[in-house]
């Protein structure tokens, strides 16, 4: 284990993973509070197809990753405001997009590369140990920028999330804020794909935030706790996989995250906090208000 810690691949993974986990924890808190985890789910599908399309076209994987996730996040934001498309349509669309991803995957493995036969697996389930120096720097810088942006908009975001109508009346531009947040979610999803993979990024976004929401009712404390938990879970996961080499790092991270969430649920089975109840009722009210105004 000591030898693993001194390897450059492990240090890269630790550095990039810390920044990515920080961004995911911060973004994930608002994602869960705004009940938009489905967006995270959808972005996981798109991330795979985007990355595979870029590889098949001969571009850098990250180009397709970022273009796909940010584009679809904004698309969902625009669609979501004009009447909610129902989940049958969305589910149908996203399973087709995932199917398209397998097409690009086969295109890539049969025509472009014979050495990278497991490119699909590393996108689906992450390859945090495969990051080199340049990729690590880029991942860290982008993740830190996302974190800074979330912290900057945290106050108006919280206001808009808890009471959209009042926030709008007080001059908060809730529409632009929501779209900006979705773009951040897209960037964060693309980052998280590099750490834990497109299928598991939902866990990195939702599990720490869900745990934090169960443990505390105060919004800023929960925001900080969510980020801290995400970073700690990533560290423990990486240490676990260094100690037991048979465990893939993304599984170890998810296992720790799920264990933390289960532990928090056992400690506080069902939060009766006024804050979350307020948030919940507000969210439903916002939903009904927007629905009626649209009709």
């Amino acid at each position: 284990m000591i030898t693993a810690l001194h390897q450059p691949f492990f240090q890269h993974a630790l550095l990039a993973g810390t920044a990515i986990a920080l961004a995911s924890g911060l973004v994930g808190y608002f994602l869960v509070l705004r009940a938009q985890t489905f967006t995270g789910d959808a972005l996981g599908h798109v991330a795979f197809t985007g990355a595979m399309a870029a590889l098949a076209g001969g571009f850098d994987l990250r180009l397709g990753l970022f273009a796909g996730t940010v584009g679809v996040a904004l698309l969902l934001g625009v669609l979501g405001r004009r009447g909610r498309p129902d989940d049958v349509v969305i589910g149908t669309l996203f399973s087709w997009i995932l199917g398209l991803g397998t097409f690009f995957l086969t295109l890539y493995t049969t025509h472009r590369s014979t050495t990278q036969g497991n490119a699909g697996i590393s996108v689906l389930f992450g390859s945090v140990y495969g990051l080199d120096g340049a990729r690590t720097t880029a991942a860290v810088l982008i993740a830190l920028a996302v974190s800074a942006a979330v912290v900057l908009i945290a106050r108006p975001m919280l206001f808009a999330t808890l009471d959209d109508a009042v926030a709008a009346a007080r001059g908060v531009r809730t529409g632009a804020l929501g779209l900006g947040f979705l773009a951040l979610v897209g960037v964060c999803a693309a980052e998280a794909t590099q750490a834990v993979g497109s299928l598991l990024l939902l866990g990195l976004l939702a599990a720490p935030a869900g745990t934090a929401l169960r443990l505390t009712d105060r919004p800023y404390r929960a925001l900080g706790l969510s980020a801290a938990l995400a970073v700690l879970e990533l560290w423990s996961g990486l240490m676990l996989s260094a100690a037991v080499p048979r465990l893939p790092p993304s599984f170890a991270i998810m296992a720790v995250a799920a264990a933390c969430y289960a532990g928090a649920s056992l400690v506080r089975p069902r939060s009766r906090s006024t804050r979350t109840t307020v948030a919940r009722s507000t969210v439903t009210r916002i939903a009904t208000v927007t629905r009626t105004t649209e009709e």
Binding site: V32, A35, F38, G203, A206, G210, M254, A258, Y261
Partner: peptide
């Protein structure tokens, strides 16, 4: 009950299940 925590739980379970499959 719907709401934020419920969807976080579902997301966690799904991601963990997929991670187990990967393992």
């Amino acid at each position: 009950s719907g709401g934020a925590e419920e969807s976080a739980a579902t997301a966690t379970v799904q991601a963990f299940a997929l991670a187990c499959g990967f393992l």
